[in-house]
């Protein structure tokens, strides 16, 4: 009997994010009637789309045991460049292509410095964080830019009643998921994340994998930036600040390890992002003090990481005693 309960507890702890997700949904569902409405579901997904896209890219980098602190700057740069171009009269498609190119360029730069100059990802992306934001501030002359209506239209365009940001979000998650689970590249990402040395020995082109991971992350950051400003309608000089931390937190909430080789885009990162967004949305619905949002979000993330660590400690103990959890 003791073991049965223990196993149940174990599996509950194992899926602590899901359990917390369920608790959050229940609590807000009880507190607010409209929380479970279709419209609110659409709202949550729309609001989550930008973070979700960025976190999907971040998952690739985290899986290789890397980190990308520059995504917030890439977002900012994406916002500034596209709005500047549109305001100057360039067509939307051209602005978008330039922005995506900038995201890819930053990703490539990060990847190149990691694999060729062999500098630690944390430092590489810390440096490109500064450079990206500096460049963005230069282009925007440190002023907020208001976007023309054509931009906002995109954010509110609907296909079959589903807003454009959600479609972009779903596309990115699906592509990310397929890349990780259905392609050789995806499997090699996991291998490289476990050990670059072993991967090299196994004949994997490690540098290529790392480069692609950072490229994907940079690209996702620029898409995420576009999606975000299409909803906001303006780019302020603080736009995208600390997004890197939210993206990392969401991915980690979804079970991605900071040490590489472990994690998924679907369901992992998606659930992490939705959990964060549901908390925010729920707090709005129950009219909580807006200043409480970061407090509660931080608290929930702390809790998940704590539970995960305690479970890990417990598992190690059991393992040493020769009791394997199958």
């Amino acid at each position: 009997m003791k073991w049965i309960t223990n196993k149940t507890v174990q599996s509950l702890l194992h899926h602590s994010t899901f359990v917390l997700f369920a608790i959050v949904l229940t609590v807000f569902g009880l507190l607010s009637q409209s929380f479970f409405s279709f419209q609110n579901l659409i709202n949550v997904l729309t609001q989550a789309s930008s973070l979700g896209i960025i976190a999907t890219g971040m998952t690739f980098v985290l899986l290789t045991a890397g980190i990308d602190l520059s995504v917030g700057s890439i977002m900012f740069l994406a916002g500034v460049i596209s709005s500047k171009m549109v305001v100057a009269g360039f067509p939307l498609w051209m602005a978008f292509s330039v922005v995506l190119a900038v995201g890819i360029l930053f990703g490539l730069m990060n990847g190149f410095l990691v694999v060729r100059a062999k500098i630690v990802p944390f430092i590489v992306t810390l440096a490109t964080f500064y450079m990206g934001r500096g460049l963005g501030l230069f282009l925007s002359e440190t002023r907020a830019i208001n976007l023309p209506d054509s931009f906002l239209k995109i954010g509110s365009t609907q296909f079959f009643g589903i807003p454009f940001p959600i479609i972009a979000f779903v596309c990115v998650v699906v592509i990310g998921h397929l890349l990780l689970t259905k392609t050789v590249f995806g499997k090699q990402v996991y291998a490289v994340g476990h050990s670059t040395l072993k991967s090299k020995k196994a004949g994997i082109k490690v540098n290529g994998i790392l480069l692609k991971a950072y490229l994907i992350c940079g690209l996702c950051a620029s898409i995420g930036g576009l999606v975000a400003i299409s909803q906001l309608g303006a780019v302020s000089p603080t736009f995208g600040l600390q997004s890197e931390f939210m993206a990392i937190a969401a991915a980690v909430l979804g079970g991605t390890s900071l040490f590489g080789g472990k994690g998924t885009v679907f369901p992992g990162t998606l659930v992490g992002v939705l959990l964060v967004q549901c908390i925010q949305n729920g707090l709005v619905m129950v009219n909580a003090d807006p200043y409480l949002y970061p407090l509660i979000t931080g608290g929930v993330i702390f809790l998940v990481v704590l539970i995960d660590s305690l479970r890990h400690l417990q598992q190690q103990k059991l393992k040493r005693w020769g009791i394997h959890q199958k």
Binding site: L178, K182, T183, V184, K187, Q188, Y190, A191, G193, H194, S195, K198, S199, K201, A202, G203, I204, G261, K262
Partner: peptide, 29 residues
């Protein structure tokens, strides 16, 4: 041993030369 514990046996054996199939013009495992 040069194995990746986070991958399955089959994935370990074919980490470089995984058999592929084409679905809609893309190479999938």
């Amino acid at each position: 041993l040069n194995l990746f514990p986070n991958l399955s046996i089959a994935e370990n054996l074919f980490i470089v030369n995984f058999p592929k199939k084409k679905v809609m013009g893309c190479h999938f495992l």
